[in-house]
């Protein structure tokens, strides 16, 4: 099964389970959780089920197109179900079968792995799903997002698409994956990986100090503007500014432009904005609960 067929199969499966098929967030994010379809929709009482692919950027994992497993940008298929169905583990396993993975032929396990995102003020309880000891999915029952307790509880299922495709295609190098008939992952992604890695590690025609200064400045401006948007009651645009900050912080981190001391301070600032956004979103949804 090639890479795009895998995406189609999983999308089809979850659509048949009643999920809305959404599109990726058109911004730089580290994971599908940052998408408002997850970050905001899991707040408040409305039931909501959604699935989408999210290209996810992890500057620190950039390897200049040389590492067979690590990528600056990988693809997640993100499923969020609110509330979490009782049969969700079985439904998830059915989705693997739909991709041609017969659980009776393999060793599939749910091993404890609780997820936490300090910048989003979010955490959950769950597992990593291991397929013959390969981690293919993060399975999480969200408990808090944006510092707010959730009710009802949502489940987030995050498939690592490259890993699953490599397993299905039996290749040991991600760049050897068939993306589509006659087109490899290398053809599609390699150049971007090389160039983005150089950017992530500040290997550009600019001194490192200047690179850091620029990104700090950008961070500050987006942070400030996010606050302004929030004051104006514009929650979704404010979230976009918050995500910009988060990505800039990741770049500062990977390029070594940030000391450990400052690191915590940056995480706290992003979190502070994320928490304020989550609160504003919930209040706007349910003005009656504002006083409680």
């Amino acid at each position: 099964m090639n890479f795009q067929d895998l995406i189609l199969k999983l999308s089809e499966f979850w659509a048949s389970q009643g999920c809305l098929l959404q599109q990726p967030l058109d911004l730089e994010v580290g994971a599908g959780t940052s998408h408002p379809e997850t970050f905001l929709r899991v707040l408040g009482p409305q039931h909501w089920s959604v699935a989408y692919v999210q290209p996810s950027r992890r500057p620190d994992d950039g390897r200049f197109g040389e590492n067979p497993n690590r990528l600056f940008k990988h693809h997640q298929l993100q499923v969020v179900l609110k509330p979490a169905p009782d049969e969700i583990q079985q439904i998830y396993l059915d989705s693997l079968e739909a991709c041609g993975i017969d659980p009776r032929q393999h060793d599939i396990r749910f091993e404890e792995d609780n997820w936490e995102s300090p910048t989003l003020g979010a955490w959950g309880i769950g597992w990593q799903v291991l397929l013959d000891s390969l981690e293919i999915t993060q399975f999480t029952y969200f408990q808090q997002v944006g510092g707010l307790d959730l009710a009802p509880i949502s489940v987030e299922i995050t498939y690592g698409l490259e890993r699953i495709a490599m397993f299905l295609q039996r290749v040991d190098n991600v760049y050897d994956l068939q993306w589509a008939p006659g087109v490899t992952y290398r053809d599609v992604r390699w150049r971007d990986e090389v160039e983005q890695s150089k950017y992530a590690f500040a290997q550009i025609a600019q001194p490192v100090e200047e690179f850091a200064r620029l990104h700090r400045e950008l961070f500050d401006r987006h942070f400030e503007f996010g606050g302004t948007l929030l004051k104006s009651g514009l929650v979704l645009p404010a979230l976009e500014q918050c995500l910009k900050c988060s990505h800039l912080f990741n770049l500062l981190d990977s390029s070594g432009g940030i000391g450990v001391t400052e690191r915590t301070a940056y995480i706290l600032r992003v979190r502070q904005l994320a928490v304020a956004i989550a609160r504003a979103y919930v209040w706007a949804e349910q003005p009656a609960e504002k006083e409680t």
Partner: peptide, 19 residues
């Protein structure tokens, strides 16, 4: 299923050892 599973485990371990 031992043989298939073992081979898959080998691939995962090899990737880790390469790192």
């Amino acid at each position: 299923n031992a043989r298939v599973i073992a081979r898959n485990c080998e691939r995962v371990l090899t990737a880790r050892l390469r790192d």
